[in-house]
Design a protein around this nucleic acid. Sequence first.
DNA 1: TTTTGAGTTGTTCGA
DNA 2: GTCGAACAACTCAAA
Length: 475
Amino acid sequence: MSSTPLTVVWFESDLRTHDNPALTAAVKRGGPVIPVYIQDEDIGDGWADGKGVRWWLRRSLAALDDQFGEVGLKLIRRRGQPGPVLADIADSTGADTVRWNGRVRPARRERADSVAEYLNERDLEVQRHTPDLLHDPDAVETTSGGPYHVYTPFWNKFRDVVQVDDPVPRPDLEEVPALSEWPRSHGWDELGLSVTWDTDDIEDVWTPGEPAALSRLKTFTDGHISAYDRARDRPDQDGTSRLSPRLRTGELSPRQVWAAAAETMPGDGSETYLQEIVWREFSYHLLHHYPETTREPLRDKFRDFDWRDAPDELNRWQRGQTGYPIVDAGMRQLAQIGWMHNRVRMIVASFLTKDLRIHWLHGAEWFWQKLVDADLANNTMGWQWAAGCGADAQPFFRIFNPVSQGERHDPNGDYVRRWVPELADLPDDVLHAPWRADSQVLDAAEVTLGEDYPRPIVDHSEARDRALEEYNRIK
DNA sequence: TTTTGAGTTGTTCGA
DNA sequence: GTCGAACAACTCAAA
């Protein structure tokens, strides 16, 4: 028995020091604390971290390590199977306890269960703490028992029964006794987190890490959250929270976001924003009850849907060369900064699945590779929703018109001009549909369709009719 | 137990 | 230009 008990804290999607129940409990226990992050390619569900998430993780982990470094601690980074890695660290340091916050992604949850078993068999104590989810997916159920398939009743029930905990205070890390010798830690290359991005824009837009996350949360809740309900659909404005990558890596917990948003003056903006936080809950609710939906449609009849095999068109969608400016702007924003405005995500998803009738899974996989906020629950629900085969699906005839969506949500064209600069000199009235412009207008803007910018890959009206036919066939 | 009604991030058409 | 209606299908809760 050691008089100064040593505790290992296993970090995963909770890269923060505030509201971290496992870390706070470890510090409270007294004795040295060893923070550990383990990068593991295969967590069992086939969705290994994509490039965008790895780009973010590398920087977020460095920021967390900096915070620990300021008080003489060190974040141990390792690659491999968590059970053996944690046992090895405990063995080499004499730690007797491993703590972590409960996991929310089904495969991570199951893996954590087997890791606990593995550690227990080796006489290590395991303590699990509150996960980064506000509701218990098994506890929130419909009146007749069972999971929800529609958001609004889920939201009503959530408000009735879920008591959101207050965030846990940040522990005083300075009181943690120093460890004389730290276990070995892997470099970024060994960890698989050295990612080269195609452009520098991503570096200018994002500052990963908990300090920047807290700062953004404050800016958002002090400021434009009050206009969130009106501004969130405007990709040309900074109307959204941009907190999604923070929640993905756990630089912020949903409890912190909830508390900060609920504290602001009550109003339509913050109410609408709280609903978005609960959309994340709903997506985890669905993934918990239907884990197979990351690859299979929730609605069975969509198994017969005749998706088109069209690699060239998929490629043009990915590169932002469809000839529909709002779609191309979104796809290029994604490629360049690893993030896309939510409204535009819906537009490009509708375009891929309905106009091009390409399987939503191709879209989900592309987003998964590129997004810095790629979250399996949100990505799955979003794509199935857009394709019409998921929960709370829009009626199948609700097919976004990429021109009218662009005109409505990017009325001045600032968003398109920013991401599709070859169209920047077109006047507003044809910016979202360049093929409608007179030849003099195109000449004046120095745009030659088919050369500088593609003609539309499909005619939306015809594509819409064909999609409706197919949806009618399977109904 | 059965019925009813509200809800659902849109588009198009015609008055 | 603006407006309401039509476009189907399903979930869920309340009557």
